[in-house]
Design a protein around this nucleic acid. Structure first.
Lengths: 195, 195
DNA sequence: AAGATATTAGCACGACTGTGCTAATACGTA
DNA sequence: TACGTATTAGCACAGTCGTGCTAATATCTT
């Protein structure tokens, strides 16, 4: 029997190389050769794991969404519901370098959605999941049922808008504003519910 | 003297062809040749007006921002400040096919920012202008000075988040939700100011 | 009508793309 | 040690890319 390497691990290593290229040079520079080089692999080796460019893009997108989901899931439920909500929401917005790259990759790969249809499917699924998460959060904050849908959609838009703004700059002041806005929104939802 | 065509008009014609390509096939398909074909021109003719690809992308981005700015500027100030605010904000969100394409192009071209640095400059300028507009709107709605910055940033994020969500689908129901969310936010800002 | 020239058309080059394919390599088993 | 094969490396092809460049075209002035 020959050498046997962990395919999944290899895939993730390559996907992370792709992320670096997207972040540093833009999605336009993402080619099979460039990603292989960034990963320190020969093109042939990369293609042994990702036969086509579409496979590569699809997995890279999926892994990014999976990582983000996992990061959110690991936020331990606080007793203070407002604090917990803020903590969750702050993971959805690129406040740290890691999540900033994540969102930039997310956005950039969406630009490829028209040519790689599977990415569009992943995007829609992620958007749906995020909206469901916002609904859950709104309910937990005590928003009355009749207002949950509106407030959830609003919260979702707010989060993605902040993410969009932060994805451009790494300014610490901008990050602080984002935190403040999220806290204000969470407080508004909770306070209105207490009436 | 030879034939003399309107350069500006020609430029706009080409930029609009680029937009169509971005919308229908994604930014990855934008090449000098493809855009020339879409515009019904020879590559040489296109390059007579846009010497390089970067020039083409830069102008297309700039024109899009200019058109959007002009559209907003033409909203006549209502007497009802809430109605006026809503009307302005609804122009910032891709509710109509035209503005939907506009935002899609906007988003897609941002993906090229790392390779065409001038696009990054335009993006930052547009973002800054939009934020200033939000500040102005917040003030006109009567938001107290100490809260203007926070509320303006929140409004800006909300608008861009809604835009991001709407850019994917053309669902009429989604558009209605966006209108409702914007109206609610405008009302909240105005109502809180009345206290 | 004739000349001048802005405009258009398009060839050509080198670099890059994705992918089919074969040869070399390295490693676990027998 | 030697075999077999998973893995790696990389060549090759057809296509597209941006762009430098020249030749043809079309139109306005004289």
């Amino acid at each position: 029997m020959p050498k046997h390497i962990d395919h999944e691990q290899r895939r993730e290593q390559i996907a992370e190389a792709l992320w670096r290229v997207v972040e540093q040079e833009g999605v336009a520079q993402v080619s099979v050769r460039r990603v292989a080089q960034e990963a320190g692999l020969a093109v042939g080796s990369l293609r042994h794991v990702f036969p086509t460019r579409a496979d590569l893009l699809e997995f890279s997108t999926e892994l990014m969404l999976r990582r983000a989901t996992e990061r959110i899931r690991q936020v331990t439920p606080h007793e203070d519901i407002e604090e917990y909500a803020c903590e969750v929401l702050e993971h959805l917005v690129p406040l740290t370098p890691a999540s900033r790259i994540e969102f930039a990759v997310n956005l950039a790969l969406y630009a490829e959605a028209p040519s790689v249809s599977q990415i569009g499917v992943l995007r829609d699924r992620a958007q749906h999941a995020l909206q469901e998460g916002c609904r859950l959060l709104a309910r937990r904050l005590g928003v009355p049922d009749v207002r949950v849908e509106l407030e959830a959609r609003r919260l979702h838009a707010l989060v993605d808008g902040l993410a969009l703004h932060l994805s451009g700059s790494v300014d610490a002041a901008e990050a602080e504003w984002a935190r403040e806005i999220l806290a204000a929104e969470v407080h508004r939802l909770h306070a209105a519910a207490a009436e």
